[in-house]
Write a protein that binds this DNA or RNA. Structure first.
Length: 866
RNA sequence: GCGAAAGUGGCGGAAUUGGCAGACGCGCUGGUCUUAGGAGCCAGUCCUGGAAACGGGGUGGGGGUUCAAGUCCCCCCUUUCGCACCA
């Protein structure tokens, strides 16, 4: 960015006498009548109703739908929705057929907790909230196609959520299993792993407990590799992709079989040796010779089988204490590792050594096989444990150029090195050793190459009322029986009195809900009392937006094929893992079932930043919540939304301050005043000179900035244009002013009409009501039903951006010493000649030798002298 | 501990490929109009010396590369976010 390109800078302008404005009537932009007027017109003309049967150049613009957990739309919603709408409106003016839907993620704990707190049925409070929020949403003036609104808590919607569950069930992707799961004692329900990050409930912050319960899972782990692999095809923030990668947590290594010293029923004995085998996963098969003991997770099913009578008491006491600990305590890395010996031994697959088997809480049942080989010399956790319980430490990887003595080690050596004490592998580099050892184990049928993931299956059942009932019937004879599709939806009973959480689903206490006939055998059977995780609802809402009224299918295949995937998805980064990963999984599963023709739902994703207030996240408890309504009422919706865009980088977020909004209000007033005074009778014809340059400069930059969601700088560029126009229109400046300014050379501005028409179109996506109003002010013949949003987005003419004079910076020894007004394609020789003549440069050049000349055409000359 | 991003005036924030640091806005100062001004308009506003012209310094700290560094490299500090015994 160089000054000479700035349309409004005029640093060489001579001071002029103050000339009083003659035509400016200062008055405030009357948003109060104007904004509702245009909203009514848009409603009337169906301006925001997208004809989905004629996609044309389609553009599916999506924001994360709102969560009616309270009655109010908060500033975070505005910050997500309003700038996103500006982007989508711009797309529309670029000629895209834009579809911008809105709906309500109305099921779930927050909505239910809100209802419970007030003793009212969640259906009532939700409907109430939706009514209020919809009104507030309408104030934004966004292009929402309200004819396609969805509400995930309506039977018309959750019927199809249940249908999707059944599709997964039929494909073996929805299954029930008994497992230690996260239990939130406050919400009285189980949670998915993603919702219990760090051991606390994602909703209420309560530490979660482990409970062994039978629950429904979606087999997302089956898609781990594909979820990982197709990330590379997505235009998503790098950070979001990394988070998903980390969450999936692929790691390569080996599965290795260790023999027990006895035979246990149900456990493999492939060699018929009379001993059972168990597997462990390791990423370091090269350290296999350094194993000195084995560790099982306390929950490991073999523990009960192998524990010797002598150790039984200690083992049981230990397991008990582990179960009482919350996950927070258990996973804290601060805490010293604890464990206990089981009395049992395993046999090393290569050396035949006896290895004591311990249980310890640092081994997690949910990862790998729930058992590990312990190599204290080369794994810090094993090292700490071995030191504490005086277990042997055996060095098998030697660091380059030195040797390790276990007696003097104060931490494990985890880096690569050379294998030692490893029989035939001695001297092998550890990296190479990984595959060499795995190969040997494979030959001996005692191991294999393997990949494991951190990702766990998605636990989807919830012991709560306000959700979509799981469409499964439990029959003593037939087992798990899917509810026949023609019987969907399984309606959530409405006349429930006690929906507060009690540890099991409130539905379990309703015989009229629970008791059914088995659809297969006709005998009495029970419904599943649990409801689905809300993230199931939100994993497919973008499909339903396209066919919200269809009661024969979940979505219209033709329309879906034409409109999806979503072209631009905008929402909070807090959904980087959960919602976005779940939705990707559901879409891939539906793709495999040939129910959709795309396997990634969101081609391009961006996150808005977070708006803080006084440095903190806004929250009721901090008392720093900014109420958008107050500002909308005072300044109007356009000013409010533009200020949010102007505050800073959209993807960065920022700190709210009341003061700054006046800057935008002034801008809008000044712009409005300009049109008020000049719209009528503005000079026809083509703009020329500096005005033409400034206009095209603005078009270029606003366009570029919108492309990258840099709303703040786009608005700055428009402010510069306005400042320049006001100066030119109000005070015809002397001819001699600097190149940067707008000068007409006469009283008026030639081509002002075109300038104003273009400006109205530029500002329209940012301030839709204002844009519409300004555009209509320009031509009395324009009907109310004509819309600026049906006008083409202005295009800049590169020729208009070519200047006949540019400011060339002259440096001496890298320091700025002069500026020259020159022809842009002037050559080095001429510039040096000009520089030598410059009086300002004389003191720096006199008596010196020019040793080097650096010339950047049209920009800079640097003379190195000495 | 690991991973990612960021640190620029009183404040929010701008600055293609390294090429005029501080655009735009808030706030502040002075002026103007006014019964009044917390409205509008005009001028000024990184720090520092100077009446000015014009100098000197300056993008978290330290070093380096370069004619030239907010931007590239190395070390350090701080903040935010994410993950956190994942074998």
């Amino acid at each position: 960015m160089t000054n000479d390109q700035r349309p409004t800078t005029n640093d060489q302008r001579p001071t002029t006498n103050n000339q009083q404005p003659t035509t400016i009537h200062s008055m405030d932009y009357p948003f109060a009548p104007i904004e509702p007027k245009w909203r009514a017109v848009w409603d009337q003309t169906g301006a925001h109703h997208t004809d989905l049967t004629k996609p044309g150049r389609k553009f599916y613009g999506l924001v994360m739908f709102s969560y009616p957990s309270a009655k109010k739309l908060h500033i975070g919603h505005w910050y997500n929705f309003a700038p996103a709408d500006s982007f989508f409106r711009w797309k529309r003016m670029q000629g895209y057929n834009v579809f911008e839907p809105m709906g309500f993620d109305a099921f779930g704990l927050p909505a239910e907790n809100y209802a419970v707190a007030r003793g009212v049925h969640p259906g009532v409070t939700t409907a109430d909230s939706i009514t209020h929020i919809r009104e507030q949403l309408q104030q934004i003036g966004a292009m929402y196609d309200w004819t396609r609104e969805v509400n995930t808590s309506s039977p018309e919607y959750y019927r199809w959520t249940q249908w999707i569950f059944l599709q997964l069930f039929h494909r073996g992707l929805a299954y029930q299993k008994q497992a230690p799961v996260n239990w939130c004692p406050s919400c009285q329900t189980v949670l998915a792993n993603e919702q219990a990050e760090g051991g606390s409930c994602e909703r209420c912050g309560t530490p979660v407990l482990k409970r062994d319960l039978k629950q429904w899972f979606f087999k997302i782990t089956q898609y781990a590799d594909r979820l990982l692999e197709s990330l590379s095809r997505l235009d998503w923030p790098r950070k979001t992709k990394i988070m998903q990668e980390n969450w999936i947590g692929r790691s390569e290594g080996a599965m290795i079989s260790f023999a027990l010293e006895k035979l246990i029923e149900g456990w493999p004995d492939p060699s018929g040796s009379g001993f059972s085998y168990f597997e462990i996963f390791t990423t370091r098969p090269d350290t296999l010779y350094g194993v000195t003991y084995m560790v099982f997770a306390p929950e490991h099913p073999l523990v009960a089988e192998i524990t010797t009578p002598k150790q039984r008491g200690a083992v049981e006491t230990y397991i008990d204490s582990v179960h009482r600990a919350t996950d927070i305590e258990r996973i804290s890395t601060e805490r010293e590792k604890t464990g206990v010996f089981t009395g049992a031994y395993a046999t090393h697959p290569l050396t035949g050594d006896r290895l004591p088997i311990w249980i310890a809480d640092y081994v997690l049942m949910g990862y790998g096989t729930g058992a590990v080989m312990a190599v204290p010399a080369h794994d810090q956790r094993d090292f700490e444990f071995a030191r504490k319980y005086q277990l042997p430490i055996r060095v098998v990887i030697q660091p380059p150029g030195s040797s390790l003595d276990p007696a003097f080690m104060d931490q494990a050596y985890e880096e690569p090195g050379v294998m030692v004490n490893s029989a035939e592998f001695n001297g092998t580099a550890s990296e190479e050793g990984k595959s060499a050892v795995t190969r040997k184990l494979t030959e001996l049928n005692r191991g294999r190459q393997a990949v494991t993931y951190r990702l766990r299956d998605w636990l989807v059942s919830r012991q709560r009322y306000w959700g979509a009932p799981i469409p499964i019937i439990h029959c003593d004879v037939c087992g798990l029986v899917p509810v026949p599709e023609d019987q969907l939806p399984v309606r959530l009973p409405e006349n429930v009195k006690e929906f507060a959480p009690k540890g099991k689903s409130p539905l379990a206490n309703l015989p009229e809900f629970m008791d059914v006939e088995c659809p297969i055998c006709g005998l009495p059977a029970k419904r599943d009392p649990d409801t689905m995780d809300t993230f199931v609802d939100s994993s497919w809402y973008f499909l339903r937006y396209l066919s919200p009224d269809r009661d024969d299918v979940a979505w219209d295949p033709e329309v879906t094929k034409a409109w999806l995937p979503v072209d631009q998805y905008i929402g909070g980064a807090e959904h980087s893992v959960m919602h976005l990963l779940y939705a990707r999984f559901i879409i891939k599963a539906l793709y495999d079932a040939r129910l959709v023709s795309f396997d990634e739902p969101f081609t391009c994703l961006r996150h808005q930043g977070i708006i803080t207030h006084k440095g903190d996240k806004m929250s009721k408890s901090r008392g720093n919540v900014v109420n958008p309504d107050a500002f909308v009422e005072k300044y109007g919706s356009d000013v409010f939304r533009m200020y949010m865009m102007f505050m800073g980088d959209y993807e960065q977020g920022g700190d709210w301050s009341d003061g700054g909004i006046t800057g935008i209000a002034r801008f809008v007033n000044r712009l409005w005043t300009l049109y008020l005074n000049h719209a009528e009778g503005a000079e026809e014809g083509e703009p020329s000179g500096d005005v033409r340059y400034a206009l095209h400069y603005t078009i270029q930059h606003v366009t570029q900035d919108l492309e990258t969601l840099h709303f703040n700088t786009a608005i700055s560029r428009m402010m510069e244009l306005l400042n320049g126009l006001l100066e030119a229109a109000v005070q015809p400046p002397p001819l001699s002013r600097g190149v940067g300014g707008i000068s007409s050379g006469q009283g008026g501005i030639p081509g002002l009409k075109i300038v104003l028409d273009t400006f109205a179109r530029l500002v329209a996506p940012f301030a839709p009501h204002l844009g519409e109003e300004l555009w209509h002010m320009l031509d009395a013949k324009r009907k109310e039903t004509d819309s600026v949003f049906d006008q083409p987005w202005p295009e800049y003419d590169p020729a208009a951006l070519v200047r006949d004079k540019v400011t060339l910076v002259v440096q001496v020894n890298g320091k700025l010493r002069d500026k020259l007004e020159v022809n842009p394609d002037i050559d080095q020789e001429s510039v040096v000649a000009l520089a030598k003549m410059s009086e300002r440069l004389t003191p720096y050049l006199e008596g010196k030798q020019i040793r080097k000349v650096i010339f950047v055409p049209g920009k800079l000359l640097n003379l190195v002298v000495g």
